[in-house]
Design a protein around this nucleic acid. Structure first.
Lengths: 219, 219
DNA sequence: TTTTAAACGGAATAGCTAATTCCGCTTAGT
DNA sequence: ACTAAGCGGAATTAGCTATTCCGTTTAAAA
């Protein structure tokens, strides 16, 4: 029995398909429910049993790491794009807009970046963000479009605030834009445009306040 | 043995003292840690065993209800006071300020009013708030101090946003004031005062972003 | 077709956290 | 001293979900 020709049995194609499905299912489920989602949820969404999850990933943690390392890179690329905008104010708006959009779309992403429970991203990323974004903010202040005193570090509290709004946007998926607009206006040095998106109506307010679970579309 | 003179053995005074302590401990612990705090935590804070907690309260849920029914009433009273301010803008500022202050001081209170998990306050309260606060907002818009389009229902998303900031205010307990100021400016129709409170410095940002657990004083 | 190991489903297990119960020991009050 | 109210805190429940296991199914090689 020569050890030379390894005779690698080709991977069964149903298995390959399941693997695909699972990755996609994980993406979708984490995006919608965040990391509190169960592996059972993911398996179900993929139409397989939990056992199959473990034939493709070592653990829940590993799925998350794999998925969100890529997601963070992708998000950073979007930020880079915004930074290339010339107009100081528009660049800032674009930065907040694209970042908030990504986080609103993917709850796993915002948990990855904003969790308050001691499992956040490492300091490398924090430093990188500071380095990349400082110029944006400093330029904004210098150009007189950003209010005096606003700094890069304001982004953490601001995105933290927005994070909570994505979650109550069941009724109106874009509701967060209204509050982002309000915050941006509070950061800006001058004029005042109209608010985008309508506020909640009384029924929506009551439902949200009373924590009624509103029906919500996949997106 | 006549059933007339009930001969009520007076409550042991150490027991009475413990009862006091427990209530106070529960107040403090829930205020600082929210409802995820353990009965063990509370017992410890009061310097007694868990058993004693159950000799004073039927369940954790009951402690919460008892405590926060009163807390809500108290908070509403503060709101009423703000509503009596004549200046339309100052009244609005006072409303947000006093409410945020209360919620920042007591995490249990903000959880009671803002939880996203289907256990929120009942609709009665929502309706009451709408009724009481609508005039405040309508007057603000009419007086030209509140931006066109702002309505009562905006309070829910706004306090929801602020809620997340209280939690990252370990470094600087008043940090949330900075973001409340930004939001208020975004709501206002005109001028722009300086921002209160300094933003995070780089170290604080990095620590917060990386979820490092910062040491924090009781208040 | 038959054969066989890769894959599978999903029940069972393992771990963890925290509420609630229990009971032998203490101690205030008589 | 006596005694029942009180107490501490270990033990018990319970809920929840990650992870493991194993008998069964099935793609694909023979």
């Amino acid at each position: 029995m020569p050890a030379t020709k390894p005779e690698v049995r080709t991977k069964r194609k149903d298995a390959a398909a399941n693997s695909e499905r699972l990755t996609q299912a994980a993406r979708e489920v984490f995006a919608r429910q965040g990391f509190s989602a169960t592996l059972e949820d993911i398996a179900q969404h993929a139409g397989v049993g939990v056992g199959t999850v473990y034939r493709n990933f070592a653990s829940k943690q590993q799925i998350i790491e794999t998925l969100y390392e890529a997601a963070i890179d992708s998000a950073l690329a979007d930020v880079q794009a915004a930074l290339e905008i010339e107009d100081p104010w528009l660049a800032i708006v674009a930065f907040f807009d694209v970042t908030a959009t990504n986080q609103a779309r993917d709850r796993g992403l915002s948990e990855t970046l904003l969790r308050h429970d001691g499992v956040g991203p490492d300091e490398k990323l924090a430093e990188k963000l500071i380095a990349v974004l400082s110029p944006l903010f400093e330029r904004g202040v210098k150009a007189g479009v950003l209010r005096e005193g606003v700094t890069v570090t304001d982004i953490y509290p601001i995105f933290t605030m927005l994070d909570n709004v994505y979650r109550i946007s069941d009724a109106s998926p874009q509701l967060w834009r209204r509050y982002l607009a309000i915050v941006l206006d509070g950061l800006r040095a001058s004029e005042r445009p109209a608010l985008p998106v309508a506020p909640m109506n009384i029924a929506e307010f009551t439902a949200a306040f009373s924590s009624a679970v509103l029906a919500s579309e996949p997106n």
